[in-house]
Amino acid sequence: MSLLDQREVVVRTVDVVKQYGEGEAAVRALNGVTCEIYTGEYLSIMGPSGSGKSTLFNMIGGLDKPNEGSVFVNSVDIAQLTPKELAFLRCHTIGYIFQTFNLISVRTALENVTLPMLFAGLTPEEADERGIKLLDLVGLVHRLHHRPSELSGGQQQRVAIARSLANNPSIILADEPTGNLDLKTGQEIIDLLRSLNEERGVTIISATHDHKMLDVSDRIFHIRDGQLALVETREELDKHKALA
């Protein structure tokens, strides 16, 4: 088949079940999801609200633990990790980007970017140097000492992207990164993510509603009712486009 099959696997989920609530009121957000995500790909997770998209996202990111099944990130079963090891994994292996930016409101752009580096044990000088480079990369080197409230939505998301790259993660998880942005700014963010993916080889996993996102994705997971309903590859997408 395609090149994808020969690639290294960075995330693997096996029969992941996540249930919220107990007894009669229980809701199964994920109902047996098995998937593999390859190193260096740009993957979009699509699905209507309530399909379990965000839940899957949280599982992959080690933000929540499954009730059944396992999630492997870099061949480590995250359900087996202690809280400290999980914090280490989040610090070093995964970068997060959120729909609502989630910058730390009391810290400046540079401090937001350097905080994960300090968690990783860098000295303040090393962290500042690397932080300035990253903010330069996202085009915000002139906004180093501004707090999030002094930045526009697009700028805040750029800071969040720089922050997600802080410790050279192998995965960036983006939960609707363009959801709170206008079309033009959203497109800029998508282009930035795609170029990071191509230039740095970082795996990007993004939950999205945004159809612009699909144009740059290598693969698309369609989630329906807590299950992986369909996996589309780039070739299939291009074929559909050619037909239409």
């Binding site: 990111g61 933000l63 809280p83 400290k84 914090a87 280490f88 989040r90 610090c91 070093h92 997060y96 959120f98 989630n102 910058l103 730390i104 409101s105 905080l115 994960p116 968690f119 990783a120 922050r163 802080a166 410790n167």
Partner: peptide
């Protein structure tokens, strides 16, 4: 709480 969640995502330990 949100801020706490965010800092956790950045790799802060519970004790931090």
């Amino acid at each position: 709480y949100r801020e706490i969640g965010t800092i956790k995502c950045l790799g802060a330990s519970d004790s931090f």
